[in-house]
Design a protein around this nucleic acid. Sequence first.
DNA 1: AACCTTTGTCACCATACGGTGACATGTAGC
DNA 2: GCTACATGTCACCGTATGGTGACAAAGGTT
Lengths: 210, 210
Amino acid sequence: MVTKVAGTIGARNPAVVRARVLAALGAIIERDGLARLGVNALAREAGCDKVLIYRYFGDLDGVCREFAQSRDFWWTLDDLVQGLDPAGLSRTRALQVLMRRHAAAIRSRPTTLAILAHELTERSTLAIALEEVRETRTLELFAWIGERFDLPAAVDLPAVSLLLGSAVNYLAARGRDVSVMGGVALRSDADWERILSAIDALIAGVVPPQ
Amino acid sequence: MVTKVAGTIGARNPAVVRARVLAALGAIIERDGLARLGVNALAREAGCDKVLIYRYFGDLDGVCREFAQSRDFWWTLDDLVQGLDPAGLSRTRALQVLMRRHAAAIRSRPTTLAILAHELTERSTLAIALEEVRETRTLELFAWIGERFDLPAAVDLPAVSLLLGSAVNYLAARGRDVSVMGGVALRSDADWERILSAIDALIAGVVPPQ
DNA sequence: AACCTTTGTCACCATACGGTGACATGTAGC
DNA sequence: GCTACATGTCACCGTATGGTGACAAAGGTT
């Protein structure tokens, strides 16, 4: 009897520990990046013994898999097209709005930005999860656009989207720790307005209002 | 006398060892990426004792500094504008050609691609070196363009360049280990022609021939 | 009460890392 | 010849990592 020495954090409740581990994973990714993620660091952050991680999740990859399922790394189609009336918008304006919403959605997800940054270096579990959701959502969006607007055959929509989307992803990830690039600031929303305006112009140039 | 046991690689020639270390650094970066770079790995790759690295370069960072000076991570202005006749080209075509040359120059430099990928994660010595040369060369190029073409005031050239350049950098880095993205292939030069054509169209849309 | 399972803790292993001190070896100057 | 120095080799330290086995406490079941 007696003792009850150690300050058990989970108080014999595995669900609490699991939740803490998952939360800690997010915290580490956002603060230090995926490169500094490890079982030891994760256990430290979660305030639990690393043995529990192995017991509950198998290994670090198991934690990542579960983490990926518990979060939405990407916008949904509804996020992007919500309240958007195809009849009241020119196709040009519609594409511009979609691109702006994409940028806003990405920039507001620090975890996603960290994964985007890391996937250029290593093909981790989280990178693969992000890749999958991104591909499916992108296809959904393309389908949605294709059903509502007809685009000039001359414009290669996938290629243009890939280009502008890549630029947004790259600059959003880069803007986390660099404030200015090529004479263009990346930090504040006001800075981003300049970039988004340029995107507007590029879209307007390549797909004129019908 | 006698013995001459160990297979001394540098044969008492520090210059040889130094050169081998620098070459090994490039090899590791291109093959494994900056994340897997370390003193031990570097010594292994160079086939020398790691003590020599500390003696000759101070530390790993010293090797990187010297490596950065010994290589050109970026195009020079001359690389890009060589043989380009401002009088014979529309401003549209000129910008398109410059962008294509930029892409070709980046894609042909595996070390640069590895650093570009890594700088999203960590601000390493090599990333800083790359950043500096990139900024200065970009300014040079902007000046060159400004002296020879007049651009519509409506178009924000820095922002547009940043956007398209970022996309090219991102896709080039990404194309190293992923073959298709958003339905667009990234591997071969033929795949890239599709991307470059889209860039042509975007440029043509935003800055019409004078 | 006695038992069994779950939960949490601790000690330990092998490995790799960055970094340093001590020593053997060859070469140049005198 | 001898000394002095630059060069190369090896052994070692402290620390961190991923991973595992053994054990103490708490509950529930019978």
